[in-house]
Amino acid sequence: GTVKVQGITIKVPNPDKAYKIAKKLAKKYNLTVTRKGNTIKVE
């Protein structure tokens, strides 16, 4: 899958794990995490 952070896309082998990490970071930096299948977008 991929993770998008402010325009940066990161390929990740485990979208579930990445999503959990993204959620933690999002809370810390007051961002929104959206997930569509293997693509995770943080904005």
Rank of each mutant, 00 (worst) to 15 (best):
Q6D: 10
T9P: 04
K36W: 10
G1E: 06
L25C: 14
K20H: 09
A22S: 03
V33P: 00
Q6Y: 15
V33D: 00
K11I: 11
Y19V: 01
A22E: 00
K24F: 14
K11G: 07
K20P: 00
V42A: 03
K4I: 15
T9N: 06
K28L: 14
K4L: 14
Q6I: 12
K24Q: 11
N14C: 15
A22V: 13
E43L: 10
D16L: 11
V12E: 01
K24C: 15
K17H: 08
G7D: 05
K11L: 13
L25Y: 09
V12R: 02
Y19I: 04
N30K: 09
T34N: 03
D16G: 08
A26G: 05
V33M: 04
K17D: 08
K27H: 06
P13L: 14
G37V: 02
G1M: 11
N14K: 02
K20R: 09
D16V: 08
K41E: 14
P15M: 14
K24M: 13
G1Y: 12
I8Q: 03
L31N: 02
V12Q: 01
A22M: 14
V5E: 03
I10C: 15
I10R: 04
K27G: 06
K28T: 03
K20W: 13
P13S: 13
N14M: 11
T34V: 07
N14Q: 03
L25Q: 00
T32D: 01
Y29S: 01
V33G: 00
I21C: 15
N38A: 05
P13R: 13
I8S: 03
K20Y: 12
K23M: 13
K17F: 13
V5A: 05
Y19T: 00
T32V: 13
N14D: 13
R35E: 01
V33I: 10
V3F: 06
K36S: 09
I21D: 01
K27R: 11
K11S: 12
N30A: 08
N38V: 05
Y19P: 00
A22G: 04
I40V: 06
K23D: 01
T34M: 07
T39E: 11
T34R: 08
Y29I: 03
I10E: 01
A26V: 07
V33H: 00
Y19K: 03
